[in-house]
Design a protein around this nucleic acid. Structure first.
Lengths: 144, 144
DNA sequence: GTTGACCTTAGACTCAACTCTAAGGTTTAT
DNA sequence: ATAAACCTTAGAGTTGAGTCTAAGGTCAAC
């Protein structure tokens, strides 16, 4: 049975974050002292560690909530449900990477066009390019 | 002289956004009607378009503020100042891409390990991997 | 028997870039 | 002269994932 600060030390999640996760239904303390102190069982610790791993794998707290409901009742959930969540997250990540790569290209082109020297910016080609607005890549903007 | 809705139509930025940008010092209407309606000159329009292009190039509103101060007084600013802003943004983008690629790899490995079928999740290898927590990539978390 | 470290709660604040609302004033077309 | 379409402001709400504060209760050690 661990107190919240001990679980915090074990998981690297702050006590604040642990309470926040509790408020969001992700973790609970199975036991409480008379005064209301949280006491975490081994199972609680494993659940908290699962949450942390999932978070580090890029899942949102909402995703993690779904993964946890699979976790507590594996018999009623299929592998497909799990891969759906994972695939959806991967699609999201791939989309963001594509956006950022387009941005990366834009910025690289801008940087390559400019001397970067100490001369004044009267003829700076980055400024000119932004002034023209011709190379629009619309990165980061939802187009749908 | 354009009214705000007309500038909105020209730039694709909503009137709300244009007012918001004004509040943040990015754009202004050079003229106003007696009743206080904003009227934008050609120079205002060019400035708004500059802002839009910069935003589409991934610059934050704060970055754009800096770019605009170069823009209004190019003689007192150097190309280097402009490339510094741009390089800084590129570094940021590269960092995010690296994070996301690490995430992408994690998710891909997870997906490859699981059958994704209709069988129940009792032996789902994604769930097992999250349970183990061994493959930690800590994507998206500041480590510094 | 008190100091200091810990715990509790509810709720406000942070970041960025909007987005929207309320409540009202103006302009234009009929 | 009145309705529709536009404009104004101040300020609140959104998103996600925390982070922090205030005000107080509890526990262990000395």
């Amino acid at each position: 049975m661990l107190k919240i600060s001990e679980l915090s030390a074990r998981t690297g999640l702050s006590a604040h974050t642990l309470r926040f996760y509790e408020k969001n239904g992700l973790i609970t303390a199975s036991n409480h002292s008379e005064a209301g102190y949280r006491f975490y069982t081994d199972a609680d610790v494993r659940r908290a560690e699962f949450v942390k791993t999932a978070r580090n794998s890029g899942f949102s707290l909402e995703d993690i909530g779904q993964l946890l409901s699979v976790r507590v009742d594996k018999l009623s959930h299929s592998c497909q449900q799990v891969t759906d969540i994972t695939q959806h997250k991967l699609d999201e990540v791939n989309g963001k990477i594509a956006e950022l790569q387009s941005l990366q290209q834009t910025l690289t082109i801008l940087l390559e066009s400019c001397c970067g020297g100490p001369e004044n910016a009267t003829h700076c080609s980055i400024m000119e390019a932004l002034e023209e607005g011709e190379f629009r890549n619309n990165a980061g903007r939802e187009t749908s």
